[in-house]
Amino acid sequence: MLTPQIAPEKCTGCGLCVGVCQNDGLHLVNRVVVFIGESACTWCGLCEAVCAAGAISCPFEIILDEF
């Protein structure tokens, strides 16, 4: 399962991403954010949007599938 990508070395432990995740998918462990795998991440990107440190990202692959 693909999960939001976390760069622990950039994480400041501010916890903003934990607060905005509507699926309770992120937790702080020892002041660093970790993804809790069993949650159903919807890839909404809010965690990426609120992270001022750029420590968490939800990348997209661009593919072609025309009508």
């Binding site: 990107g45 990426e48 949007a49 750029g54 990202s57 939800c58 990348p59 997209f60 692959e61 661009i62 593919i63 072609l64």
Partner: peptide, 15 residues
């Protein structure tokens, strides 16, 4: 940045 197949394209964030 369109990938050739579902597995090879570069991954881009909105940032």
């Amino acid at each position: 940045n369109l990938g050739d197949t579902a597995a090879t394209g570069p991954r881009l964030t909105q940032r």
